[in-house]
Simulated scan of single mutants.
Amino acid sequence: MFKAKNVIRIGKGANAVLARPLSGIPLAIWAFSLTFALALGSTAAQQTPPPNPHSPPPTSVTHQMYLDMKLGTLNIHGDNAVVEALVLQRDIPITYDYVATLMRTPNAFGEGPACIVCHSSNDQLKSYRGLNLSSCEGILLGATEAPANPIVIKGEPFQSHLIQRIRNNRMPLGTPFFAPVDTDSILAVKDWINAGALNDENFTTKVLPLFVDPVAFGSETACTECHKSFRDPPSFNEVNLTSYDAIMTGAFSKTRKKQNLPGLPIVVPSNAEASPLYQRLTTSRMPPGTDPGSPADHPNTLLLMRWIEQGASCD
């Protein structure tokens, strides 16, 4: 086993694995996980007989991992494989200790400073938004500067503002971090939503044309360049901003329709702050400096989401 340019190689020949350690996971633990898994499952890629229905159940998660690899049902490959295969798929409890490590680790969710550099106190004179990410209590309390709001909704990672800020890029892509959020165009969208998001003359003449204007929201790309149909591709997240009905249909409508579910709303009438459409026009991805082209689902982000999904326990 050796390390070069933050990449480790474990095993020999065709069975070797190249992997890059994750932020917040010590190299020794990372390497041990892969070495142990490979040692147990060196024949995982080969055809093996189905499990014996009369075999005793696994006695531990380690035993289960061994059985899965022996049967070829656990495949470990790629940078994020260990987290996905050994943690997320097995619903291993995520402790607050690990979450605390993430908040203190630079580049934990993408290139940028540690979260607690900017958010370490509920005092709004010392910490942006009066947000304290240096303790579990602070995370659950949320932002204290007006408008005060929680950043974690237990059991609902996608509804939690903390996850939204880590995953979601400001729109349109390429908008500078310090671009104003109170321009006439943005306020027009905000006022339309807060007035009930009606399909009226104001929407038709003042709001809808903004989505086809390449300079309306601080970039040089019209919203409809990336959001013009219910298919992905060509429209990211199956968002369609070409008409009132399309906007109100929401995101992932085509995919969710197959599951007899409505699209995810991007507009919450009378509540711009809760509307993803307005949020994406005004909030930049955290931490500052994260490349908008970097993957939204960094392994550490997935672990943070799982912690919230499991109830955001402080234990």
Results as ranks from 00 to 15, higher is better:
residue 3 K to G: 13
residue 3 K to M: 15
residue 8 I to G: 06
residue 9 R to C: 09
residue 13 G to V: 04
residue 17 V to R: 08
residue 17 V to E: 08
residue 21 P to W: 05
residue 23 S to F: 02
residue 23 S to T: 09
residue 28 A to W: 10
residue 29 I to C: 07
residue 31 A to F: 02
residue 32 F to T: 14
residue 32 F to V: 10
residue 35 T to G: 14
residue 37 A to Q: 09
residue 42 S to W: 09
residue 47 Q to T: 13
residue 49 P to F: 04
residue 62 T to L: 07
residue 66 Y to I: 11
residue 67 L to A: 05
residue 68 D to H: 03
residue 68 D to S: 10
residue 76 I to Y: 03
residue 79 D to F: 04
residue 83 V to G: 00
residue 87 V to M: 04
residue 99 V to M: 00
residue 99 V to G: 00
residue 102 L to K: 14
residue 117 V to G: 04
residue 118 C to E: 12
residue 120 S to W: 04
residue 122 N to M: 09
residue 123 D to N: 12
residue 124 Q to W: 10
residue 124 Q to L: 10
residue 131 L to G: 01
residue 136 C to M: 05
residue 138 G to F: 02
residue 145 E to H: 06
residue 152 V to S: 12
residue 152 V to E: 15
residue 155 G to M: 15
residue 157 P to F: 12
residue 160 S to Y: 14
residue 161 H to Q: 15
residue 168 N to S: 12
residue 169 N to S: 12
residue 170 R to C: 06
residue 178 F to W: 04
residue 193 I to L: 09
residue 198 L to R: 14
residue 204 T to C: 01
residue 205 T to Q: 09
residue 205 T to R: 07
residue 210 L to M: 08
residue 213 D to L: 00
residue 214 P to R: 09
residue 215 V to F: 08
residue 215 V to D: 08
residue 218 G to I: 01
residue 225 E to A: 05
residue 226 C to L: 02
residue 228 K to W: 01
residue 228 K to M: 00
residue 233 P to C: 08
residue 241 L to I: 10
residue 243 S to Y: 11
residue 243 S to I: 10
residue 243 S to T: 13
residue 251 A to E: 10
residue 252 F to P: 04
residue 256 R to D: 02
residue 258 K to M: 07
residue 259 Q to D: 12
residue 260 N to P: 01
residue 264 L to H: 06
residue 265 P to I: 07
residue 265 P to L: 06
residue 286 M to C: 09
residue 287 P to S: 08
residue 299 P to T: 14
residue 315 D to C: 09
residue 315 D to V: 12
